[in-house]
């Protein structure tokens, strides 16, 4: 299987809203939304009205009918507070998965592209093997074997997340290295290391930033799916996917309990995608 045909599996990146933005203002606004979510994450304890773990009212209080704005769940915990804490656990994880993916994949791709030769061959063979495996399934299996929990989830997803970046970075390095400006630098007498750091790698950065910013939405969806399957932090911790899963059985009696965390994931994904498009637009403008 050729790697070129395998890369697009992650073309679910930038899926959902946020495909194209036009004006610069709008781009900055979307990035502002991203920052807003980050603020919510940082100040979650101050924003959340109640403790997310302790029951505080009657079970199954519907939303907008009491002082519990989004109602309560099966044992009377505040749904809004659990949503806010759920965002707090999911959002940084999504960013972290992408950052780790970029760090590992970027390093592998850059080394393979710059050094070339047998090392390039070896690294890319390994990358292609990873790309040929069904990413989400392997991640689920890894976390299942390691045991549920946030750290294991991070490990499991990161293991399948980096190869895509490695492919892209390596391809980008190769296409830059074949450009005349690198040959011109060689003829000027620039050393190998300096050619890599000054004449090749800076050209990879914009691509990488754009890819990363667009990829966070995908990471969040994957994380929430794994959490739904019971691979995240065990209860009673507040987690968006798991909260939806635990209450899916009661959805006919109390629709809001599974729906609200799901909507939370939807909003996070949309914000991430919009911000990603914003970053891409601003980068393309340059």
């Amino acid at each position: 299987m050729t790697a070129a045909t395998l890369v697009p599996e992650r073309m679910r990146l930038a899926r959902g809203l946020g495909g194209r933005l036009s004006s610069e203002m709008l781009s900055w606004f979307c990035i502002g939304l991203f920052a807003l979510v980050c603020l919510i994450v940082v100040f979650a304890p101050l924003i959340a009205p109640y403790d997310p773990i302790q029951p505080i009212g009657a079970p199954y209080t519907p939303p907008f009918t009491s002082k519990y704005i989004l109602g309560t769940d099966s044992i009377g915990r505040d749904v809004l507070s659990r949503l806010i804490y759920g965002v707090q656990s999911t959002w940084p994880l999504g960013i972290l998965v992408v950052v780790i993916g970029i760090a590992i994949g970027g390093a592998v791709g850059a080394i393979a592209g710059v050094v070339g030769g047998w090392l390039d061959n070896l690294l890319m063979r390994v990358t292609d093997l990873f790309l040929a495996l069904p990413a989400a399934l392997v991640a689920i299996a890894i976390v299942a074997f390691l045991g549920p929990g946030t750290t294991n989830m991070l490990i499991g997803i990161s293991i399948v997340w980096w190869p895509y970046f490695a492919r892209i970075v390596r391809g980008e390095v190769h296409s830059l290295a074949a450009r005349p400006h690198v040959e011109a630098a060689r003829m000027t007498g620039v050393g190998r290391r300096r050619i890599a750091t000054r004449h090749i790698l800076p050209g990879v950065v914009p691509t990488l930033v754009v890819l990363a910013s667009i990829d966070i939405g995908s990471a969040i969806l994957t994380i929430s799916s794994l959490s739904f399957l019971g691979l995240g932090t065990p209860p009673p911790a507040a987690e968006l996917g798991a909260d939806a899963a635990h209450n899916a059985g009661f959805l006919l009696q109390a629709w809001w309990v599974p729906v609200i965390p799901g909507l939370g994931v939807l909003v996070l994904t949309i914000v991430a995608n919009l911000a990603g498009s914003g970053v891409r637009n601003l980068m393309l403008r340059r």
Partner: peptide, 13 residues
């Protein structure tokens, strides 16, 4: 020194 066919592309952007 070399002058390339696409001289513009021989400058690091």
């Amino acid at each position: 020194q070399m002058v390339f066919q696409d001289a513009g592309a021989s400058l690091t952007p």
